[in-house]
Design a protein around this nucleic acid. Structure first.
Lengths: 79, 79
DNA sequence: CACATTTACCCTGTTTTAAGGGAAAATATG
DNA sequence: CATATTTTCCCTTAAAACAGGGTAAATGTG
């Protein structure tokens, strides 16, 4: 389970009952891109990755101590 | 705050007191790449983005209902 | 075990990112 | 207000991703 991204993609695709080809078409990318993604390539383009994630309802998020503190400060305005 | 990634990068860079140039050098990418990242370009290469995030201690993670359920099931072995 | 489907992995041409130089515009600082 | 620093954005060249075709290997299924 070292390369997480590849696993997540594969796992979701299988669960969705899609072939690489079908997922590629749904996401609007090439079939090779899906294959490479599932096989550990990390030099893919971010926009393409995002398309694939969207199809399978996978959310992407960032966090760091600094950013969380910032968000906390600025969410006070909401409530 | 529509384009989150750009904001996160900018925010962290400023907090770190780095110029685009310096961040680029630390991450081992070109200066233009940092500029573009901070200005909403999302067709950057994932490996380059990861390098930048690492320098600033920003974690990247994925989540989806399916994946969380899976992790929960398999974390039982740990305890 | 035969057959159908899917995946792995080649190859080709096209398109795009990436790096880094340069210089004007914007911003910071004495 | 003058000057130094930083950012924006143009240009060029090289490297790499991308799409999609093809086919053998692997896997699934009757």
């Amino acid at each position: 389970m070292q390369n997480r991204l590849a696993d997540i993609i594969l796992f979701h695709r299988k669960r969705s009952g899609l072939t690489q080809q079908e997922l590629a078409e749904l996401a609007g990318v090439g079939k090779n891109m899906i294959y490479e993604l599932e096989n550990g390539k990390i030099s893919v383009r971010l926009d393409n990755l995002l398309k694939v994630l969207q199809v399978m309802n996978i959310e992407l998020n960032f966090h760091s101590p600094l950013w969380e503190a910032f968000l906390r400060e600025h969410s006070d305005a909401k409530r």
